[in-house]
Design a protein around this nucleic acid. Structure first.
Lengths: 314, 314
DNA sequence: CTTGCGGATGGGCAAATACTCACGAATGGC
DNA sequence: GCCATTCGTGAGTATTTGCCCATCCGCAAG
């Protein structure tokens, strides 16, 4: 009589979800107690007889986000709808990232928030509303000095601190030092040191992911030379986070530029939530690698990219 | 930002039905009050964003469906549970019809689908998810012009084509012409002719069945006059499909309104699957007649109606 | 600047639903 | 045939949900 029970359960579920009866009404109609009716309905749900379907683009995204979390062990994952007609690299993810940043800023207890750099993050910051958050600390993971000595345009800490009125800790450094010894020297300065230490205590970190293809932002913005880029590619680099280049397995690449990167290390994943904000085909290998190597444990991306990441899983 | 509200509603509904959160949890996650969360969920349900589907052959209904198929030579038959307390004329059958329509739409090969009209079909269309089916053609069997010259409300092809992104072929005609000659003239127009031809090639046809009692929809919606209705009743008419009135034997009635009906003929049963979607006592004589006269060879109905059809068989 | 309107919001409460527990019937092994 | 285990049941209770209503907010007209 197993089938019969499921039959009745299906009928109860039908009456409940499709016909909109209450469990009392169902109980009366099927001639059982209300409790039994409740059990039938929940049995039908548990047995998967009832399919819920949300017919809206957002639902698809939430599905993908859940799959990404489950498949890759991400702590936090957000997927936004893709607009196939737009070739913006930030549309959607910037807004979603801003919402996520805002959630942290709205917390009552003081929080240390570490920020990477790049166009995506910049776009996200621009979406932030202006709020008063003097209790929080925003610390930059990366230098704010461009190769020409000016303040790097894509350094986001200034804009952010300005918008949200929090205490900010920029890094008066180049992104990549000219030599390993220069980096050591810079890092030994007391102020820098304390900022580096602060960064390592961040509760949450937001970073972009840069690709290392021919139009690598690191190269285009003049932080690394053409030779460096070629060497990195040669060494299998597929992406970079605040300057740290890594290969397809998400392992930081020894030598080349990485021994001169003046950025703070990416905060440890076991103590900090490290959320990458990135979408698009060019960044796909980098995103995949960063996840694989557990450089990040959070991701904000778009539908297309999410789908691509899951497809590669086979 | 109308879309944004629905976005949030869809998100809330997803969290509620798919992820199984309570409204409190949703409220916390979305940063709103529980009441707002509740409103979002119910908005999503009200807007039809949420579709429920019970995926289980309910033995009783399957049994009735089989009996109907065997007794009446129906090719396709679906029976859904009845809710004795509901007086909706579409509850259940609309969902089942939507599922059937969806099955056809999901086919890879291009299909020509013909659609009738009426409240039941309209309700079914509203249950369709939005999918991309540009390969299919949806053709209306009946005119889309109401007696007052406006677009007939219960013409379903527009809504359907919109939801499923298929190519649609409406009929810019009144449902019933003012005279036989007007009908001839209208039907001789090249565009109408090709649409009529297309309709005759439909692989599957979905129609409602209208009763011809005192509240006949054809009369209530102003397509036929009170005199016409009386004459039809006098002539033994018990039902109509896309305007074509028929008697208890399922024979089309000569004269009266039928020589002015501008709808396409019901596609031939030997080449097309013609599925009627109808339930309820009022429609029972019409359903019985349509089956008897082999105007249809498929039926989606409810338990009570199915039982009644079989009872009459003795 | 005030007033009034429409729509959104949250508090509160009753209804509906989910869960726990103890009991009793059915099942099955010995 | 007896006992042990499982399964389903109803009662009671905690939690969740649905709804009403007073209030608030934004906005536009006066």
């Amino acid at each position: 009589m197993n089938g019969n029970r499921l039959d009745e359960a299906a009928r109860a579920a039908w009456l409940y979800y499709v016909a909109g009866n209450t469990q009392d009404q169902i109980a009366a109609k099927l001639g059982v107690s209300r409790q039994s009716a409740q059990r039938m309905v929940s049995l039908a749900v548990a047995e998967g007889l009832v399919k819920f379907r949300i017919d809206h683009p957002i639902a698809q995204c939430m599905d993908l986000a859940k799959q990404l979390r489950d498949s890759f062990g991400l702590v936090r994952c957000e997927v936004v709808p893709s607009d196939p007609d737009s070739d913006s690299t930030t549309l959607g993810v910037a807004q979603a990232a801003a919402a996520e940043i805002e959630r942290w800023l709205r917390m009552e207890e003081p929080v240390v928030i570490a920020m990477g750099t790049g166009r995506t993050l910049k776009a996200a910051i621009e979406q932030l509303p202006s709020i008063e958050c003097p209790r929080h600390k925003v610390v930059s993971l990366t230098g704010n000095i461009a190769p020409d000595g000016s303040a790097a345009y894509y350094n986001v800490v200034f804009t952010m601190a300005d918008t949200v009125k929090s205490r900010s800790f920029p890094m008066p450094l180049p992104v990549i030092a000219s030599s390993q010894s220069e980096r050591s020297m810079l890092h030994s300065q007391p102020m820098i040191r304390s900022t580096l230490e602060l960064a390592s205590t961040a509760a949450v970190t937001f970073v972009g992911i840069g690709d290392l293809g021919p139009q690598a932002p690191l190269f285009e913005d003049g932080f690394i030379s053409e030779q460096d880029l070629a060497s990195l590619q040669q060494a299998g680099a597929v992406g970079e986070i605040v300057g740290w280049a890594f290969d397809a397995q998400g392992r930081l690449i020894d030598g080349i530029t990485n021994d001169r990167v003046a950025s703070a290390p990416i905060p440890a994943r076991d103590t900090s939530l490290v959320i990458a904000i990135a979408k698009g085909g060019k960044k796909l290998p980098g995103i995949r690698a960063a996840i694989k190597g557990k450089l990040i444990n959070g991701l904000i991306t778009d539908e297309t990219t999410a789908q691509a990441l899951l497809n590669e899983l086979n």
